[in-house]
Design a protein around this nucleic acid. Structure first.
Lengths: 226, 226, 226, 226
DNA sequence: CATGAATGAGCCTTCATTCAT
DNA sequence: CATGAATGAAGGCTCATTCAT
């Protein structure tokens, strides 16, 4: 019961910050929802700012693992890419654990604060490295390509982040029903296939492999490599 | 000179909302920067909320054109895709016109308000349709694929939006110098190539077309369609 | 009626600051007493601090004159000293004008803030110069004595300030009745006489001039200058 | 070690109260500096108020002695006056003992609280009596003069208190360098001389005794006793 | 057309205090 | 002997808004 309130406060605050942002969330509301006095927050976490940082750190703590595992496994690169993508997507929709963890991180990325630097180094860069490793395994030499291979990585994660970042727009665009039918697995499969095809490690999206072969042969013959 | 102040107010407000969000931007600061009294805003635009809506509408007004042109041109689909992507990217970095237009729209998409519904119907859906048309031209039948072809469209726009949405993170990740070397043209080329390859309409990113042909042949032989 | 509230606020605030100090006086109480909202203070005077400064400046504005007149008059130095002393005392007990002016200045002197420097240069140093001029007229050469003649000036003003600075102690020490019988004139006379005697320009306090002459003669004879 | 914390708390609190006043000093800061918890103060001293009173009593305890000694010694009155003045001055600048004792008392005198009454009876009145005794010895009959001889006493102690009460102003007025050259001995000598002269028991400040005699004779001849 | 004046609600923070342990 | 936990009250400040002019 000792650490009870502090923990409850952290959870409520995390959710509030994730939903309404640092400025939008008031400690008054947080405390009311947690059933505590306003002063409680200043006792347990010195500042509003400190509270925010603490939330951010809590959010980073565990979430990395899911996706990172993919990099170190001994499965083939193709499979590890799928795991990575699926892991990232899943961590944003984890139904059993506090939903605000990823939301908060995402939000900090969209509207950076002083704490963003630390977040990047501790949380984001490790994930970027893991992804790079997978991509390098998949098609060696890409890291030496233009801009250090960053754009390729960005093309992959951007697809994943999109569904979290713009979920309200996606919902409005597709309509509620279709949106609900969207499963994490389906999205992960799509992104993986799209990416593998783009990297030349899998069949393209919408054409049968037979069609592809024919068309490609034609293109090669025409020497029309843009 | 009559409508002068009102227009100036709108510009300053738009920039402020784009940079600091609806809650973060105070009408006090806006008015001070525009050289007007606080009451001026309530005189010209009834509300803070109304002012915001007006800004949002102004932002939607013109920006669509660049990218939409691509859909109606008679160039080959490949080229129109590149134009679309380049157009979207460029509209976010336009140096000559008010920079806040795209910023504001992006921000409304990330943190939706009541006004988002209108924005989607008037601004976003037209762009989505334009893109869909291009993709349908590129590889017919994709719209009938799973989830109405939305995921494919998302995979494309997500790559474009990424550089605006997460520019602070991109900067931190790549380092200031490398970030500065990133040009709109280079990014547009990369995304276009990545996408075309994914759709089976172009060579993959990091492999020579010769290698690709060989590998693909091998895969076909093995019947190893994952 | 326009500047009405601002002026009322200033008066109430001045009195509050004088009585309870900067930290002790709350703008909430000030506003309540002035019949205004808390925000009124922040509208008219940006800060609590700014409000304080404004009060201090208002306090300095007029009060100097009374005592300063003494320096420029063409009366004999003896008389000008008496006027100076009386003027200072009177300005602290002026019954018709806002009583807090001198209180506030006194308080700023006892517990200095950032604003003290300005106060010294604009208000106190002029008075010090005026006093120095009088003393120099009275006994030429004193300014060249040890420590630039400051201690002599301090010995004079200290007597005057004492009754304001320590009035509560004086009241307790003397008893309420005797304290009430203390008049500004009587005090001024005493201090003037004490000072003139100390400077060798008047008879000592408690002895008849005859006694003094005799004793002094004896001392001179004995050559007993301590 | 048992009473260790309580004692440390008292010292820190005394210093804090002396420097920042009752309201200005927070028990939070006091406890932090003393390395204790906030509750410690309420455990050892019931109240913040009680703590303050305790500090005040501790301050009164020893400091009297220095100056009081002067009254009971068998030295000539002149010398005892000098000792009294020097003693008071020294107790305010004592470098070896807790500096806050006198500061706190001075502050209580300037801004009285409920505790001031006790302070006056227990600490100040004894000193006033001691001074009165010296003055009575010096020039008998002064106590029967107007206002019970209080003004004369005030004229003496005011000079002494001035340097403590207004030390910040003195510093700004004289300049840092000259202020530093001011020694306790020099001040004590000046005040003693000024006072003795005022009481007709010593030569005036700035004139040679010869000049004085001549001038006084002239004045007596003219019968110009104001 | 535009503003200065004034306000109520809300913000974050600090404070002295209590109480169970 | 001493503390950690928690709180109510108050403090200074900012905000969007209204209204008479």
């Amino acid at each position: 019961m000792a650490e009870d309130l502090k923990h409850r406060l952290l959870q409520v605050a995390g959710a509030a910050f994730a939903r309404r942002g640092f400025d939008g969330a008031s400690i008054r509301d947080i405390c009311r929802e947690a059933g505590a006095s306003v002063a409680a927050i200043h006792y347990h976490f010195r500042d509003k700012r400190s509270l925010y940082i603490t939330c951010l750190e809590a959010a980073q703590a565990e979430k990395t693992h899911l996706a990172l595992l993919a990099a170190h496994a001994d499965a083939p690169a193709r499979e590890r890419l799928r795991l990575f993508i699926h892991g990232m997507l899943a961590s944003q929709n984890a139904p059993h654990k506090p939903a605000w963890h990823m939301e908060l991180i995402l939000q900090e990325m969209v509207r950076p604060t002083d704490a963003t630097g630390v977040l990047v180094e501790r949380f984001i860069r490790p994930m970027a490295s893991a992804l790079k490793e997978i991509v390098e395994d998949l098609c060696p030499g890409v890291s030496e390509s233009e801009h250090g291979g960053w754009p390729t990585g960005f093309s992959i994660v951007s697809q994943v982040l999109f569904y979290s970042t713009y979920s309200p727009i996606v919902r409005l665009l597709m309509g509620e029903d279709a949106f609900q039918r969207l499963s994490v697995d389906a999205i992960a499969d799509h992104i993986t296939q799209f990416t593998l095809a783009a990297l030349g490690k899998g069949p393209p999206l919408t054409v049968s492999t037979a069609e592809l072969a024919a068309e490609l042969a034609a293109e090669l013959a025409a020497g029309k490599a843009s």
